[in-house]
């Protein structure tokens, strides 16, 4: 039997190797670089640093400058200098440490799942007013047809959501097969890409964990480090060897003022890297 295995191996080995012509290779290389160039400046921006972090950074910078200043002023008595810096910076210090240490209320996965289900129903009813009620006031709502978020991902502010389906304009939601534009109106996007109805019978609803199939690299947590994600996952069918699975990720972030988990992104996911 091993002999036969060997024969089979050798046969498989002996297939010719196909190569692109050099000119084709160069042409493709150029196209790839061009495509990535257009993308590059946007990618660097990584969806705006959260205001909280910005505030923290400013506070730290202020603290640093003040420390240097006071050290300079009190150069003659270094011992007291070390103790005095906190005094002038007092107002900034509690802001920095308070923000970091204070864990708001404990996270309740069941409550978030309930919220996600309510959103799913609102989406299915096309009840945009209700949906708007769940959307993050500052961050608005990102919509992406694939597991990909960049600065060019379509985002609507919370007030825009309520009338979103009346919007006749077309948006570039992302890129589909062979880099073709996905360019539709919001209503069409809901129909063709969001496909909410498929997720009522989700095979799995994952709260704050990622399914290895849909997000093996933990992409979402790298893009939304402070977020909690509810994933509705429908397994693929046998007809397509399971590859027609789909997921809808609802991404929530906690609103600072209310401590409430608010929707910031609806991200579809299907078989793409």
């Amino acid at each position: 039997m091993n002999d036969q295995h060997h024969t089979a191996d050798t046969k498989l080995d002996a297939f010719p190797t196909y190569r692109m012509s050099e000119s084709a290779q160069h042409r493709i290389h150029q196209n790839v670089m061009k495509a990535l160039e257009q993308q590059a400046p946007k990618q660097k921006l990584t969806r705006g640093i959260s205001p909280r972090i910005t505030a923290g950074l400013i506070a730290i910078a202020a603290l640093f400058i003040l420390t240097i200043l006071s050290l300079n002023m009190l150069q003659t008595s270094p011992n007291t200098a070390i103790e005095t810096p906190p005094a002038p910076t007092e107002p900034t210090v509690p802001i920095v440490s308070g923000e970091d240490e204070e864990e708001p209320e404990p996270f309740d996965p069941a409550a978030l799942e309930q919220r996600a289900n309510a959103i799913l129903q609102a989406l299915d009813r096309r009840d945009m007013a209700t949906l708007a009620g769940y959307v993050h006031e500052e961050k608005g709502l990102l919509l992406s047809p694939y597991l990909s978020v960049s600065d060019s991902t379509v985002r609507f502010s919370q007030p825009e959501i309520a009338t979103l389906l009346d919007d006749e304009a077309t948006y570039l939601w992302g890129y589909g097969e062979a880099n073709t534009d996905i360019r539709t109106t919001p209503a069409e996007y809901f129909e063709q890409h969001l496909q909410v109805e498929r997720f009522f019978e989700a095979d799995e609803v994952l709260v704050d964990t990622t399914s290895p199939e849909s997000d093996p690299t933990n992409y979402l947590s790298s893009v939304f480090p402070d977020a909690k994600v509810v994933e509705f996952y429908t397994a693929g069918t046998e007809q397509y060897s399971g590859l027609d699975w789909r997921s809808l990720h609802m991404v929530f972030e906690q609103e600072e003022a209310s401590g409430e988990w608010r929707l910031i992104a609806l991200i579809n996911n299907l078989f793409t890297p």
Binding site: V32, A35, Q39, N179
Partner: peptide, 9 residues
Amino acid sequence: QEVFIKAGK
């Protein structure tokens, strides 16, 4: 081409 664009992104 698509593979490398996707990889880049």
